[in-house]
Simulated scan of single mutants.
Amino acid sequence: MNEDLVERIRASVALIPPGSVATYGDVAALTGAPTPRFVGRVLAEDGADLEWHRVVKADGSCAPHLREEQLRRLAAEGVAAPGGRVDLRTRRWAEVAR
Rank of each mutant, 00 (worst) to 15 (best):
P34T: 00
E95S: 13
R72E: 13
G78I: 10
A29E: 13
P82N: 05
A58L: 09
L71E: 15
C62T: 14
R98M: 07
D4I: 01
D26F: 11
G40I: 00
L66R: 14
R10L: 14
L71N: 11
A97V: 01
S12G: 11
G84C: 06
A29G: 12
P17M: 10
S20L: 06
G84V: 07
V13L: 08
G25P: 06
A28H: 01
V13I: 10
L71G: 07
L88S: 07
G60N: 05
A14L: 08
V56P: 07
H65M: 10
V79F: 11
D4L: 00
A33E: 03
A75H: 09
E69P: 00
P82L: 12
S20A: 15
E95P: 10
E95Q: 14
Q70W: 07
L74G: 09
R73V: 01
E69Q: 11
R8I: 01
A29T: 10
D4Y: 01
W93G: 01
V27K: 02
A44K: 14
G84L: 09
R67I: 03
E68Q: 11
V55Q: 03
L30F: 10
R72F: 12
E45S: 11
A28Y: 00
G19I: 00
L88G: 08
A14S: 14
P64D: 09
R98A: 15
L88K: 08
V79G: 11
A97M: 02
P34R: 08
P82T: 10
V21W: 13
D87L: 04
W52T: 08
A22R: 04
D59K: 03
V39S: 01
V55S: 06
R91W: 00
S12C: 15
V13H: 03
A75M: 01
R98P: 15
P17Y: 00
W93L: 05
L71V: 02
A33K: 00
H53T: 04
P34A: 06
A75D: 10
I9F: 08
R67C: 09
V21H: 14
I9C: 04
R98W: 12
H65D: 14
D87C: 06
S61H: 13
A29C: 10
R10K: 14
K57Q: 14
I16V: 15
E51P: 13
G60L: 02
D4S: 04
E3P: 06
R8N: 07
G83M: 05
E45G: 15
P82F: 06
F38T: 04
A58V: 10
R54V: 11
H65L: 11
T90P: 04
L50T: 08
V86D: 09
A14H: 09
P36I: 01
T31Y: 01
